[in-house]
Write a protein that binds this DNA or RNA. Structure first.
Lengths: 340, 340
DNA sequence: CGAAAAAGCCAAAGCGCTTTGGAAGACTCT
DNA sequence: AGAGTCTTCCAAAGCGCTTTGGCTTTTTCG
């Protein structure tokens, strides 16, 4: 059942039927009702391929997926996707993942924009002065950044959490508990979120006349193993920290294992706070010692990004508004006063 | 730059240019070269929207993503996606995720097929007599099942691993080590993979005249917490098992924590073997006691599924061939002879 | 009441590609 | 040389929708 048939069946022109269906004003209300009815009754659905050829609109949002034999997709991605998908579903939006060589994403961005394959895109895990953001901005396709980039001569729309504030609060708590030597086990510090977290910790320390030793901050891919290694190194050196802030729950698994392997205890010898993106399959309250966390649901962020993308596509949202979500500090058993 | 302009520029018809570009035989080789040259030089790329309207081909593969507030996307998904994306990239295939109400995926499948939104789809985590498989089969779109369904009156194409064989081998090893009471902490046993794994364990036990007590098998969502709970329950009851087979590394985290909480040790009191899908961020050799595993890279499976989908789209693969990959049994420190 | 404005509808021209059904010229064969 | 066969190209008809421009008919209003 296509438009032509439907129009013929109603003894109307395609024009009128099309307009009736798409809510244009120049059609009699009664006619519109007749058309709507018939469309529903016959299960008419406009062919999206035809529509997109005519309008350029696709009803899809895009994401360029960096791939490669040595490129790992972050497990956070799936949780973000849950939220995004949950919202997108209610708006009949599909998500198209365009795999790209991790070292050359530009080609793919250009392709999906030139081909009008999607109505909008989002960008995640941005770095300062991220080239993707600059590119997409000049290409002129609607977009939202999940996270923040910095150092452009233009503004853009983003949804981010207050990473700096979160880690500032976490560090402040530890300092209040008497800790003087903090360590930070961070994610990839070429990414903005990691930079902001480090900044938060440093600011809290500075406020108390303390500082973050270079040896006490490390930046690694957020795997269990790297959490373990970093912790071993930190705790086996002289001048070991008495408290650790950690950028992910997965790394925290490694931290806990390392502490235990060294015959130390949490929070007796070391206090620990980790960032929790809220995975259903790994929860801080279920660690052997319940973990204190800075908590922010990445799933909600996914839903919000989808919502904003949808708003931008339909013209309801404009401008370069950035939004920053506060982060909860949830105190559990893994923090205590500094030893000694 | 569109076809019309290019044709005009070459003083040829659109027909000829189109055919030259698409490798049809009825065009002079020299003409073809001229066309190819000009196309390359002017960076001509056929408009995909137009092409798909004309041909119905989209260059995309589809996946219906079950969503909902209480629906969690499995973290395995992201690793599968890595492999899929890695292959798809090399073939300029995009992946479109169509979010669907988890309780009504049929509508979405029908939509994407009726609208010709994708050239092929894949289905994951199938159950016996999975309705999605039956549906997609009748809808007539090319598809591959990742995993296996059962109980149809038709054959279909799938790529699966030998779950039964893997858990059979694992159980056999434990039995050889003198264990008599095995437990299985399984995933959702409405899914085929879980059924097969249980079958494997039972078969191994039966071969030695043993059996799997109903109290020693449980089926849960594969979270850390559920692994912990199941293990507590198993070990605190009388007649506790001396060996556990576990369907995921994430649950194994909980198993290890529970064993420790109970003051027991691995492998002294309990032997443990888990299935490892090979995540980059959580590796069995890094468990406090290195974990024995049945190992199969879900990432490779993703790449293989993409490869087969591509082959089906281009007509290189036909028929209902199913393939079953063997699974490695990797023995590490978490297994030992039965206590006593 | 008659002119101007508004409402309601339609035919046809795109959107940019593929594919059908020829047609013209080159080539073979008797 | 004429009939038949290839080879090589083209005009035009889709694919199914939106949108432009225009044409009637109805309504408004001095």
């Amino acid at each position: 059942m296509n438009l032509k048939q439907l129009a013929h069946m109603l003894a109307l022109s395609q024009t009128t039927v099309s307009r009736a269906l798409n809510g244009y004003p120049e059609v009699n209300e009664e006619t519109r009702r007749r058309v709507m009815d018939a469309a529903k009754r016959h299960g008419y659905r406009p062919n999206p391929s035809a529509r997109r050829l005519a309008t350029g609109k696709t009803g899809m949002i895009g994401y360029v997926l960096p791939t490669g034999a040595s490129v790992d997709i972050d497990p956070h991605f799936v949780e973000f996707l849950s939220g995004l998908g949950d919202y997108a579903r209610s708006h009949e939006l599909d998500l198209v993942l365009s795999p790209a060589d991790a070292d050359d994403q530009e080609t793919t961005y250009r392709r999906i924009v030139a081909n009008r394959q999607v109505d909008a895109v989002y960008i995640s895990s941005p770095r300062p002065a991220d080239r993707r953001v600059a590119l997409v901005n000049t290409l002129g396709i609607p977009f939202i950044v999940h996270g923040r980039s910095e150092g452009f001569d233009f503004d853009y729309a983003f949804t981010d959490i207050d990473n700096e504030g979160a880690f500032h609060e976490a560090a402040r708590l530890l300092i209040q508990l008497g800790h003087r030597r903090l360590a930070l086990i961070n994610g990839d510090d070429r990414e903005t979120f990691a930079i902001h977290r480090e900044r938060g910790v440093r600011r809290a320390l500075a406020a108390s006349g303390l500082s973050l030793s270079e040896r006490h901050v490390c930046s690694v891919d957020m795997t269990e193993e790297n959490g373990y290694r970093a912790t071993r190194r930190l705790l086996e050196e002289g001048d070991a920290p008495t408290a650790i802030a950690c950028s992910s729950l997965i790394m925290a698994l490694g931290v806990v294992r390392a502490v235990r392997d060294l015959g130390l205890s949490i929070p007796g010898d070391v206090s620990l706070i980790a960032h929790d993106d809220v995975f259903p399959w790994l929860r801080p309250e279920n660690f052997s010692v319940p973990l204190s966390t800075t908590r922010s649901s990445i799933r909600l962020a996914g839903a919000r990004v989808a919502e904003r993308l949808a708003a931008r596509i339909s013209g309801l949202e404009e401008g370069a508004r950035g939004e920053v979500w506060p982060v909860d500090l949830v105190v559990r058993g893994s923090v205590a006063g500094a030893p000694g």
